[in-house]
């Protein structure tokens, strides 16, 4: 009993101490409450600041789209006759002659599409095989040379590609061309082909690397050789990634300006009839004429050229989105 009593006393004592400390806590809590509120406000403000910054990207996309379309579509619906131009004449004309009030861009659309297509046809196989080499075949020391080389290739500015094209590719073409002119669609195709290589290589390599190891093992177990495994199993399995790489390559090729401007010849009119004939892609038209075009119809039609280019890029982006979201579903 005596022991019990001791216990009770002790418990009472501790309870007393508890009460005392509770009073102290409530004191500090009051202070805490105040600073907590302040803190909460700061936290909320900061979150809003973060949010605003995140919205800058959205604002930019909307502003770019709006202004390019606003300026670019202006010549087709404006009521001022000196600033208006028929959209059909614009899209189907094959002569760009601002002095003679002729603004056709059909030959440029064809020029852009053909030089991009050429670059893809030559560049994709080379890029894909290089990716296969890096991901599957190359021994480690060689891989250590090829991978940084591809990365450096991606970092070289387009002006330097243009200088290379002008100094090396154009003179070679001048010698073999029946037209005796080096600046041609072939030159544009060659330069673009080199420029899309790093994009195609990097993305295909990633796609190939992400193919599950078991696929390869299964193929080997069935008696397939390494080459058969690569071409019959791995590349089909990495298809969507590789296609994404190709689409990105198309985007890069069709939007390329500076390098193409230096080698393509930039003729004012006429559809290209062979690889030897000079072309004037859409991007080049914008870059060349923006430098001197006076305010008014001529300048606005350059924005219209930008709209056509923009539509191409939008289509490419949509296709890319489709591919990547499909690939995501599969996984």
């Amino acid at each position: 009993m005596k022991l019990n009593g001791d216990c009770i006393i002790k418990i009472e004592e501790t309870e007393n101490r508890f009460e005392a400390s509770e009073e102290q806590v409530s004191d500090t809590e009051r202070v805490n409450m105040r600073s907590n509120k302040k803190r909460e406000i700061i936290e909320r403000c900061v979150e809003k600041i973060f949010l605003i910054n995140a919205c800058v990207a959205i604002f930019c996309v909307i502003a770019i789209t709006f202004y390019i379309f606003y300026k670019g579509l202006d010549p087709f619906y404006t009521s001022q006759s000196e600033n208006s131009y028929s959209i059909i004449k614009f899209l189907t004309g094959i002569r760009w002659n601002p002095a003679g009030h002729e603004f056709g861009i059909f030959h440029m659309i064809i020029g852009s599409i053909l030089s991009t297509a050429g670059a893809i046809i030559i560049g994709v196989p080379i890029g894909l095989l290089t990716a296969v080499f890096i991901a599957e075949i190359a021994p480690k020391p060689i891989k250590k040379i090829v991978t940084p080389a591809v990365e450096l290739l991606a970092g070289i500015p387009s002006v330097l590609y243009g200088m290379f094209g002008l100094g090396v590719i154009v003179p070679i073409i001048r010698q073999i061309s029946p037209l005796q002119a080096g600046q041609s669609m072939l030159a544009a195709v060659s330069v673009l082909m080199i420029m899309i290589l790093p994009t195609v290589v990097a993305i295909s390599e990633n796609a190939i690397k992400s193919v599950p190891h078991s696929y390869k093992e299964g193929a080997y177990a069935l008696g397939a050789s390494k080459i058969q495994t690569i071409f019959k199993v791995i590349i089909p399995a990495a298809k969507s990634g590789i296609i994404a790489g190709i689409v990105l390559g198309i985007g890069r090729a069709i939007g390329e300006t500076m390098a193409v401007m230096m080698v393509a010849g930039n003729v004012v009119g006429g559809l290209p009839d062979s690889l030897w004939s000079p072309v004037r892609p859409l991007t080049v038209n914008i870059a060349i004429d923006m430098m001197y075009a006076p305010k008014g119809l001529h300048k606005n039609l350059l924005f219209s050229t930008g709209v056509v280019l923009f539509v191409f890029i939008l289509i490419i982006n949509l296709v890319l989105n489709r591919i990547t979201s499909k690939a995501g579903e599969k996984q």
Binding site: A57, C60, V61, Y67, I68, G255, E256, L309, F310
Partner: peptide, 22 residues
């Protein structure tokens, strides 16, 4: 936001130039 940043990275620089100009 993701769509916006992805679209931004796909736009060719000449279009940025045009936008910057206007």
């Amino acid at each position: 936001i993701r769509f916006a940043t992805e679209s931004l990275s796909g736009i060719p620089s000449i279009i940025y130039g045009l936008f910057g100009f206007i």
